[in-house]
Computed example of a mutant assay.
Amino acid sequence: MRKTLIAVSAALAAQFAASPGHAETLNLLIWESYIDQNILDRWTEKTGVAVNQIYYDSGDARDEVLSDPSSNIDLAVIGENGADLFGKRGILEPLTETNVPSLKDYKPDWKARCAGYAMPYLWGTMGIVYRSDMVKTTPTSWNDLMSPAPELKKHVAMYDDHNEAFIAPLVLLGKSINANDNETLKAAFEVMKKQAPFVLTYDYVITSIQSPENGKNIYMALAYSGDQHVLNDKAGTPGVWRYAVPKEGTLSWLDCMAVTAASPRKGLALQLLDFIGSADNAAANAEALTMPTANEKALDLIPAEMRSNREIYPPAEILAKSQYQKELSVQSIQTRRRIISSMANFQ
């Protein structure tokens, strides 16, 4: 699926680059179902500039597109670690309150995590999504995912990504999710190998749930907070998919939205970023997606019921046990990718 998305992205980018009729279209590289379409529609109505969303389903796929100088991407949603790496490589445009005035509504620590090259967008945790009609007991530990009950054999979806795929095994081992040493990664491999016979697919759950072959057979999966709402919408089963954060701790993630330095429509892209990041739109987006915003001013515009929902805004005790992603060594990334690729041998 990842290669398909990359090919589609490249084809779309080439199409928009070649056609003068699309000169007033901005290309946004983003996860599927990750922005309220009404916000983009209001932008187009206000400016006459359309927004073309190009989807990816893993950080690796996104990074390949961003690394391609011919991709013709104007804006991209990228993780905090990626914002720093791609910013230092000159791929992302530096941001300030001068070129994106809405940045004033974000606390310095949030902005620092996007490294000055992107705007804080949405944040959350990583955990376990499960079909409550098939999994009667709420998962409480990463062991529930990595050592599943016998009845879950071939009903688990994991995630083919060199960062996220290792969170559960590394946390279970009591290690850093940013581990680089071969001994620790080998121990994680052993945990993943034992789980492999239970795994139906290593495609991201929002991708795999839409597969006619696999969708109805997925009962539990590795996922981001907020994915349960998208899964319920895709499956047409309100409330069936639920989300749980394991007691051992997890990843505390922040997604950032950036403008590419090579964008031929950079001025318009910066204006769109400022529009999306404004308090009104940040609040509307967070409410529509049922996810937490990093915009402090927007919090006052979000219903109290949503702000007090622990599934959306995790409690302090969960965040205290969570880790941030940091830059991995090249050797670690290569080892992790080899481990993930080998999982098919054990399914």
Score class of each variant (00 low, 15 high):
residue 4 T to G: 15
residue 325 Q to F: 09
residue 215 G to W: 04
residue 37 Q to H: 12
residue 166 F to N: 14
residue 28 L to S: 09
residue 237 T to W: 03
residue 212 P to W: 03
residue 267 G to M: 12
residue 23 A to P: 13
residue 207 T to Q: 06
residue 44 T to D: 05
residue 261 A to R: 05
residue 187 A to L: 06
residue 11 A to L: 14
residue 79 G to D: 11
residue 2 R to D: 06
residue 312 I to Y: 04
residue 85 L to N: 04
residue 106 Y to R: 01
residue 126 M to C: 00
residue 311 E to I: 09
residue 87 G to T: 14
residue 340 I to C: 05
residue 170 L to S: 10
residue 89 R to S: 02
residue 230 V to A: 12
residue 125 T to K: 11
residue 139 P to M: 04
residue 279 A to T: 00
residue 194 K to H: 15
residue 52 N to K: 10
residue 62 R to A: 05
residue 234 K to D: 13
residue 221 A to P: 15
residue 238 P to M: 09
residue 138 T to M: 09
residue 215 G to V: 02
residue 165 A to V: 09
residue 40 L to M: 08
residue 25 T to R: 12
residue 197 P to W: 07
residue 132 S to D: 07
residue 1 M to I: 11
residue 23 A to G: 08
residue 160 D to R: 11
residue 138 T to L: 00
residue 34 Y to F: 15
residue 318 I to M: 07
residue 267 G to H: 10
residue 281 N to S: 03
residue 94 P to M: 10
residue 213 E to C: 07
residue 261 A to E: 11
residue 100 V to C: 07
residue 234 K to C: 01
residue 150 P to G: 10
residue 256 C to F: 13
residue 160 D to F: 14
residue 88 K to I: 15
residue 134 M to F: 03
residue 195 Q to A: 08
residue 122 L to I: 12
residue 156 V to T: 13
residue 58 S to L: 02
residue 286 A to S: 11
residue 123 W to I: 00
residue 170 L to F: 07
residue 199 V to H: 09
residue 275 F to P: 14
residue 59 G to I: 00
residue 242 R to D: 15
residue 307 R to V: 07
residue 21 G to E: 15
residue 343 M to Q: 04
residue 258 A to E: 08
